[in-house]
Amino acid sequence: MTRITVILAAEPRDRALCRSLLPPAGAIEVVADVEGGEAALAAVARLRPQMLLLDLQRPRLDALAALPQIRLQSPRTRVILLTSRRTPTALILEGLRRGARGYLDRAAFRSFLLKAVRAVDAGEAWVPRQMVSRILDQIVRLSAAEARPRGGAGVTPRTLRTQRRGQERT
């Protein structure tokens, strides 16, 4: 198995937890741990790791803001967002839009952190099933916005459905 280099960008407590869950010597190597989006960006630009575990902490949104730049600086680095139960879906979706390849709730670290890192490193996405429909909605909305001539086409069944779902959510 090839080595996976990882940068941890999270609060000290979560970093300690992640470190304890990733095997100390072996296939996965934590090459740096930092806190905040700006520090993550600097570390990624310097070390160009295979993986960045990036805490999507509220209210600080600098992790999100740093994502596009992280992709520019190191296109090969795959990002998994670290979230909590209270992280709003909108924020997670925005993170995925900005190129993150998955996200993991801190409550699931113990069971899934290692699996998620391996899966994303292997090119897979790490998102729960119920998120897939949200992702699809976004794609459809974005493509519709692209395709729609100014003034807008008529209401299609799909936009109706999308709107309806949007209302359920709010």
């Binding site: 995925l96 839009r97 900005r98 090119g123 996405a125 992702i135 699809l136």
Partner: peptide, 10 residues
């Protein structure tokens, strides 16, 4: 397919 969808989204 989910992976592809994510790529589409981005």
């Amino acid at each position: 397919v989910t992976t592809q969808l994510l790529e589409e989204l981005t």
